[in-house]
């Protein structure tokens, strides 16, 4: 992944500034690498690779909700790597597997190693999780985050102020992220 560092860093900085296309490209790219990384790691630790997709999604959410902790003056690859490794250790610890000998720098080669897109579904269902949110949060997220309407259009349709739409999206995504994390951990 080192070879991609300048490009990934550029995408991340653009994503932090609100460039949705760059951000999407970044998350797509990272999810592919993370998938390969977690599959090989879980197999190495004698676990089934079935949890890999849950971990990928947990990390994608963590990257998103904590993207303000990346500073443009630091390297991007070690930032992602530290999060991915943290989540792997957390996952193994929850399942009482040994984790002490996870190498610090094993990510580069293995992340390149393999990626297959067969198992890109995790065990939970976005629609079901969304349905558990309060109605206003659901509406705001559906319109802005899934259908891609603007904040202003959504505000008009849902009869909310623009700042209310933003707050509902923000809180809703946070709740959604919490629910997904909980499902991954259970």
């Amino acid at each position: 992944m080192t070879a991609h560092e300048p490009e990934l860093r550029r995408l991340m900085i653009a994503g932090q500034a609100g460039d949705a296309a760059a951000y999407r490209t970044l998350l797509d790219h990272l999810s592919r690498h993370l998938r390969g990384y977690y599959k090989s790691k879980l197999i190495n630790y004698g676990r089934s690779s079935a949890d890999a997709e849950d971990l990928v999604q947990d990390v994608i959410i963590a990257i998103h909700t904590r993207r303000h902790t990346y500073s443009p003056d630091q390297l991007f690859t070690p930032w992602v790597h530290a999060i991915a490794r943290y989540k792997l250790i957390d996952h193994l610890r929850r399942r009482n597997t040994g984790f002490a000998d996870i190498p610090l720098d094993g990510m580069t080669s293995e992340m390149e190693a393999h990626d297959d897109r067969d198992a890109v579904e995790s065990g939970y269902d976005l629609q079901r999780l969304l349905a558990a949110l309060p109605a206003k949060m659901q509406q705001a997220i559906r319109h802005v985050k899934i259908e891609g309407l603007s904040i202003a259009e959504t505000a008009e349709r849902c009869d909310m102020s623009e700042s209310a739409v933003k707050v509902n999206i923000h809180r809703g995504l946070k709740k959604l992220a919490d629910m997904i994390s909980r499902e991954v951990k259970s």
Partner: peptide, 23 residues
């Protein structure tokens, strides 16, 4: 859920971050 779906939700209309929030 498909990871693609999740990425769509997170990246569509993504909000810019505040760089000074952390400190």
């Amino acid at each position: 859920m498909k990871t693609d779906e999740l990425i769509t939700v997170l990246s569509t209309n993504v909000e810019p971050i505040d760089r000074r929030q952390l400190s």
